[in-house]
Design a protein around this nucleic acid. Structure first.
Lengths: 128, 128
DNA sequence: GAAGATTAAATGCACTTGCATTCGATGCGC
DNA sequence: GCGCATCGAATGCAAGTGCATTTAATCTTC
């Protein structure tokens, strides 16, 4: 399906762009206003919250947030500065780190989650 | 359709994010490497190329590029610096401006278009 | 027609981003 | 075990972004 004449491809891409912008902007605005976290930060917290012991490798985080490695590194730094996360050395491979959710981080995620879901429900309606 | 339990909504959003990132990154990389323009710049050129006389209001541009007003203003400034576009005063409403495509701008758009389409064809395949 | 509200665009500023590089730690070949 | 490629993460830096504000023009109300 979705074979795609050139025109169809372009229209699909424009739809994707518009949809992405709508949802992303709404999420950014509400998460920022109500919980003081960005979309990327929320994504990171969500990964951690769903991980065993609220802990994951730096790389796993990079893979999830759709950011460059350096941006992901700084994202972790911000979260750490905000007390939502801690970096701990990884003994098995001492190049790497574990990022672990703090209690406060878990709390903030739990608080933000309903907001996140409600924005999705509001903005992600209709045809795909 | 697409009623959406919470879980379904989240999955749809993640799919949208992933899809957007894939296509956007590929477009950015190839347009930059082969034609030295960004995705936003291409979008602006495309709007202009499809407009009457290759000319449109600053605002129309802002609406299309999914950027803030200030970012759109600077986008036009970059395009102008690069010689792809010119800003001309709008006599009917002298607050506003017209952005007009130069010959070189039209050429660059024509050159970049096949690249753009081919990236879409390559990356926008499969389920929506 | 003048005063105040509104609009289009530009700009100062702080922050985020990606690229390239760096630094240390692992792994591999020999 | 030694050197060299590779890998995970952090960082310097230039560039792009959004927010808030500014400037100038237009519209509204009286």
């Amino acid at each position: 399906m979705n074979a795609g004449s050139e025109q169809e491809l372009v229209e699909e891409w424009r739809g994707l762009l518009a949809r992405h912008a709508t949802v992303h902007n709404a999420l950014e605005t509400e998460l920022q206003a109500q919980h003081n976290i960005s979309v990327s930060e929320f994504e990171a917290l969500e990964l951690l919250a769903s991980s065993d012991h609220g802990k994951c490798r730096g790389q796993d985080l990079t893979n999830v947030v759709h950011l460059s490695q350096s941006a992901a590194s700084r994202l972790v730094a911000r979260l750490e500065r905000g007390g939502l996360v801690e970096r701990v050395m990884c003994d098995l491979d001492r190049r790497g780190i574990f990022v672990v959710l703090t209690d406060e981080g878990h709390q903030r995620y739990s608080d933000a989650k309903p907001t996140h879901r409600s924005v999705l429900a509001r903005t992600l309606r209709g045809e795909h």
